[in-house]
Amino acid sequence: MTAKQKHKYAMVIDTRKCVGCGNCVVGCKMENRVPEGLHRDWVVEEVHGTYPNISVELRSERCNHCINPPCVYACPTGASHVKSGQNITLVDRDKCTGCKACIAACPYDVRFIMPEGYVGKCTFCDHRVEQGLDPACVSVCPTHCMHFGDLNNPLSKVSKLLASRKYKLLAPEAGTGPQLYFLL
């Protein structure tokens, strides 16, 4: 994974605009027919401070499609893999044995076992990205707080946002190179 990929896909999410409505969750659920009770994305709410000096951070979270993906390294069968030429991390259900090594390896707890026994997770809506569309969660967000694009393109909206705004990553210390950026 050290060689530079053609595309470095990232999601840039503006926590200042996010209202935590959960449409990313429902939009994903419908788009990907995510089984009942399972979710590929979710919203985390973090409250800081004490009354009346409070702040709330809302984050729409999912797989970080890491540049250095421990889930892929942990997979004994090659089911967990990175799509050629990019950083989208996928699971080949036919090769997956449901051993859960990837679940243990992921610092973000984004993977789960599907009812059929293989591992499910966010695909960045690879099937939509192939068509030049945004992932479903991004495309339905009412506040337009979510952005998707290629960080290898300096002219992309995501590149420009990261150049102009402060942001944070989740657990950067894990060294996985996560590609969800949260604008502050």
Partner: peptide
């Protein structure tokens, strides 16, 4: 049945349904 998405021309949805409409 798959999903319900917003109509781009609509002045209410502005092309995007909300959480409830998506469900």
């Amino acid at each position: 049945p798959w999903k319900i998405v917003g109509n781009e021309e609509d002045q209410h949805s502005l092309g995007r349904m909300c959480t409830r409409g998506s469900g």
